[in-house]
């Protein structure tokens, strides 16, 4: 059990997270929030790179900062952006990290072979990493996070750079792994989360907005999501009245998915909300701000 209690973090005067409370038990958690909402800050605190200004993070009742290497020993982390030695091969690099992770030498050797196989790099394991594509480097990153068979696996944008096939394989891998682990993954890619995350955490206005199963979160929009077909000419007016979630062309009409408190027109077809709808709706202000 990993428990975040009452954690706040600010950089100087800029407050990023305030009074965060989250509990993690085994399973996959999707961390969903737009850029700049404090996702990476939260992850960096969970990985001991940042220190909270207030509150504690407890693993099985002990503060992770007091646990020291006892905590990091059970931690696997894939940073959003990480460095590697260009002149090392994947195997050399993993060997180096295995040493840092305190893996016994022979065990590390076996484990590295397994993982290289698992992420599909076995045939290029001894090539220098400067020749790798972005996706290959990313897979090395995934492999290193799993080197020490962590109890807590934290992945920041793990599927970035992976092609669809690799992504599917990665999802299956995670689903398998998650049985006896806490897996926390942050991503923008909603489909990644939908298929594997047991629970979703959304952060808004420096606070945790939702921490719940996908179904429960989707329920908050139950009966509010509709689809209908309209003329292109009407599109702008329509958008001004209702919050548009997605639009696509269908013949000479436009099929629009949107949110409304009530069903005002018979041609509107009520559909069941998905997590993307929730995301767009919850962060609609930010979307506009960013856009």
């Amino acid at each position: 059990m990993l428990i975040v209690t009452n954690v706040s973090k600010s950089y100087g005067k800029l407050s990023v997270l305030e009074n965060i409370d989250i509990e993690f038990s085994n399973g996959v958690y999707g961390l969903l929030a737009p850029n700049g909402a404090g996702k990476t800050t939260l992850i960096k605190m969970l990985t001991t790179l940042l220190f909270p200004n207030e509150g504690e993070i407890l693993y099985n009742g002990t503060n992770i900062f007091h646990m020291g290497d006892g905590y990091r020993d059970i931690l696997g982390y894939l940073p959003q952006e990480f460095g590697y030695y260009k002149n090392y091969s994947a195997r050399q690099f993993l060997n180096y990290l295995a040493a840092l992770k305190g893996l016994e030498r022979n065990l590390a050797k076996v484990r590295i072979n397994e993982l290289l196989e698992l992420v599909g790099l076995a045939n290029v394991a001894d090539k220098k990493m400067k020749k790798y594509s972005g996706g290959m480097v990313q897979r090395v990153g995934i492999a290193q996070a799993m080197l020490n068979d962590p109890k807590i696996l934290i992945l920041d944008e793990p599927t970035a750079g992976l092609d669809p096939k690799e992504r599917v394989r990665f999802r299956n891998l995670l689903a398998e792994l998650s049985r006896d682990k806490i897996v926390i993954l942050s991503t923008h890619i909603v489909s990644d989360i939908e298929s594997i995350a047991n629970e979703i955490i959304m952060i808004k206005d420096k606070k945790v907005l939702y921490k719940d199963s996908i179904n429960s979160i989707c329920k908050t929009l139950e009966g509010m999501v509709y689809e209908t077909s309209i003329d292109y000419a009407q599109a702008n007016r329509f958008r001004n009245h209702y919050f548009s979630l997605s639009e696509k062309q269908e013949g000479d009409k436009m099929k629009i998915r949107f949110i409304s408190e009530n069903k005002l027109d018979d041609s509107w077809e009520s559909v069941s909300p998905n997590i993307e709808d929730v995301f767009l709706y919850v962060y609609k202000d930010e979307v506009i701000k960013e856009g």
């Binding site: 001991t48 990091r72 990480f82 460095g83 590697y84 840092l100 305190g102």
Partner: peptide, 20 residues
Amino acid sequence: RDNKDKINYLQYTSKIGRRI
């Protein structure tokens, strides 16, 4: 060498942590 390329992320979050 390590800080510039953000290898310290991996180093500091591994078992050895900041003792590196």
